[in-house]
């Protein structure tokens, strides 16, 4: 598949843009954390599209963001358990 470009996204509706990016992001995240891939992808999709496109090109950026999402998720789950 050709890489997703800003111009390809520009012709799509906003929610379709997120789906297009998510379709590229999900397999990368699945390779890192299969059991949480859907959740982490959903969290990352709230980031600006320009930054998401950069993350698709940059494994280091993506890994850093995935780690950040995991920490947030774990903190959130810990919080729910103490309530």
């Amino acid at each position: 598949r050709e890489p997703l470009s800003a111009s390809m996204l520009a012709s799509a509706l906003p929610h379709v843009q997120k789906q297009m990016i998510g379709d590229r992001l999900y397999p990368l995240i699945y390779a890192l954390h299969s059991e949480l891939a859907g959740k982490i992808t959903g969290m990352l999709l709230e980031i600006d599209n320009s930054e998401l496109l950069h993350m698709l090109e940059s494994p280091e950026s993506l890994n850093a963001k995935v780690e950040e999402a995991l920490i947030m998720l774990q903190a959130h789950q810990a919080e729910e358990q103490t309530d």
Partner: peptide, 21 residues
């Protein structure tokens, strides 16, 4: 730059996994 991830974000449903183009 603020980058706040929302743990309550909706889970992504990967349609391309079941329906490849």
């Amino acid at each position: 730059r603020k980058s706040t991830l929302n743990p309550n974000a909706k889970e992504f449903n990967p349609r391309s996994f079941s329906q490849p183009k």
